[in-house]
Write a protein that binds this DNA or RNA. Structure first.
Lengths: 348, 348
DNA sequence: CTGAAAGCGCTAACAT
DNA sequence: ATGTTAGCGCTTTCAG
């Protein structure tokens, strides 16, 4: 980038005004006469001048940039969150710096990078900062809002949905429907989302006098969830085989269904009822038609971005934790109430 | 952002060295004695100092930032492209500024914003710049690489895959398999990807003496593709109903299959063969098992980012157009060769 | 190897 | 309303 750029000085020369007149002309509410502004704008157009955002940021000490940190876009739910949030922030005149959390877990570098970049705020999508990292960002005075994950550090704002309630609904619904052997397919075990969904689920089962029949871990990933499903249903004896599956997110629920149907030759919902969590767009597609707990994406984004913007303009505003309700979406991956399970495992 | 930040001056004071010594200590290959560097680093740690990237960019005239412009992440294929590209660039030490092209098509503002941001390069995912916009960016001296879309402006580098060849394969394969009435489900009609795929497709059909039996437009979107499929198959007379469908991308192909199976009660592949384009992760899932043309994502990203980085370091390097081969993935959405089509439209 | 000094391109008082 | 001046926090000559 050694290309010499056109500066406000150049424009000033050509327009025959002072350099600050140029600056003023390009800032919204500054006192410039229409005449000078016009002269400046003409000269600017002629030279192809653009104000240098970096120089402006340096002096105003505001980058108008927000960092969005995410881990993976493999899960369409997060791609959706990202797009929504980005568009919103972009409309508010912010720039978006995108960071992916490294797969190797070297998150400290990202945090460091974040801080150096002078971003005015950080939006985290389902990323857990540890204590130390969270404090580092907070101590630096950068507002952070975490979406869909929580962190044990009260200094940070978080918005998520009611995972416990969702899990509770799933557990209770399956049990009340006559499912007898209900399995749980966990996300990342130590994640708060997973823990809350799991606890809620167990509490829901308990209302019907049941406990979790089987448990495996899919780490919120498609392929891992396929494996876990195989393990969960790897028995030949019907009495040890689950007749329902609650997965901690939709991606895993769909992986479960695919594996059940295609590999294990078990039918959904006749043989096994399946419930997910999130309600991604594709969960509603006919081939999946997944019963799930819908997270209010729109609301989450609105709340999170509002919160972030508010923290930016009012640094002393106390952190908030917002929990939004989830909505059960009953589709065709669960049996209608009362129907007994039917096994029809193929023999090939 | 009125929070007063710790500057290199503060660190210099504490460490008892000059401000430039601090600067040197934080830049990789600068002549500083280990002793001074240590003093500086200690002081820096103590104060929680981070070099201000903005100030650095201003003076070095290099922001180490690349803009990624995309239109939508609704299509998982693009989410995947974005993640791959971002991670790669991030590993190269670049920051990523993410821009979404506004839905209302007001792309000029984004272009302007891009330029002001002093990004060193622009990576466009499936976004068409018009002549004027392309020139604007190029004239400013910012290298641009467009992935998976082409633009009629020779001053810009582009990397895509062989759309014509892919379309050709699809057309020829379906025709040679015995399909008689092959329909085309177009993406955005005027997009180059669509035009090339369509032309190749027709050429492929022609080798078997066929022409495109029916045509409709899905704009590369799921819901639009469902509608288009309904229109395409809205006949009662078997001889006017297509027996195969080639969609310009996987998302539409899947939409087609879903609609065919669930609404129209036509089976795939027995009643209708379906081929897509892209090979998204989910296309391989059992429930879709979509025959498609695989784009070499990994390669596309590698080539595109290499090209971009190269243009950044060698501004005079001429633009290149790279076309990568696609690979047919034959799955279960197409009939094995020779099997005659079977209609089994349900009557509900 | 290190410090002093001169800016990068812009905004924001401060005068006029 | 406009020009002048002083930096924003840093890198980079240039001396020493």
């Amino acid at each position: 980038m050694k290309r010499k750029s056109i500066t406000s000085r150049d424009v000033a020369h050509l327009a025959g005004v002072s350099q600050s007149a140029v600056s003023r002309s390009f800032s919204q509410a500054s006192s410039v006469s229409e005449k000078t502004r016009k002269k400046v704008m003409d000269a600017a157009r002629q030279l192809g001048y653009r104000p240098n955002t970096i120089a402006r940021s340096l002096i105003t000490r505001s980058s108008r940039t927000i960092a969005v940190v995410t881990y993976s876009l493999q899960n369409p739910f997060y791609a959706y969150l990202l797009e929504k949030a980005s568009r919103f922030l972009q409309e508010q005149g912010y720039h978006l710096l995108l960071f992916f959390a490294p797969k190797n877990g070297d998150f400290d570098m990202v945090v460091d990078d974040l801080i150096r970049s002078q971003v005015e705020g950080v939006l985290m999508l389902a990323i857990t900062l540890n204590q130390h990292q969270a404090k580092e960002v907070a101590d630096f005075g950068i507002p952070v809002v975490i979406i869909n994950r929580t962190v044990e550090y009260s200094g940070i704002s978080q918005v998520g949905s009611d995972n416990y309630q969702g899990g509770y609904w799933a557990g209770r619904y399956l049990a009340s429907q006559g499912c007898q052997r209900i399995a749980y397919l966990a996300g990342i075990p130590e994640s708060t989302t997973n823990r809350q969904r799991e606890e809620g689920f167990k509490a829901g089962l308990a209302t019907e006098g049941q406990t979790c029949f089987a448990y495996d871990v899919g780490y919120y990933r498609y392929d891992e969830a396929c494996d876990a499903t195989r393990r969960l249903f790897s028995t030949r004896r019907p009495e040890t085989m689950p007749d329902a599956l609650f997965a901690a997110n939709d991606l895993m629920a769909i992986a479960g269904m695919e594996t059940l149907r295609d590999e294990l030759h078990l039918s959904v919902p006749e043989g096994v009822s399946v419930i997910g969590f999130d309600d991604m767009a594709m969960s509603a597609w006919p081939s999946h038609s997944l019963t799930t707990l819908q997270q209010p994406v729109e609301q989450m984004i609105v709340k999170a971005t509002e919160l972030l913007l508010n923290h930016i303009s009012h640094p002393e505003a106390p952190p908030e934790q917002i929990i939004l309700p989830v909505t059960p979406k009953i589709r065709r991956s669960t049996r209608p109430v009362g129907n007994p399970p039917i096994y029809n495992r193929g023999d090939k």
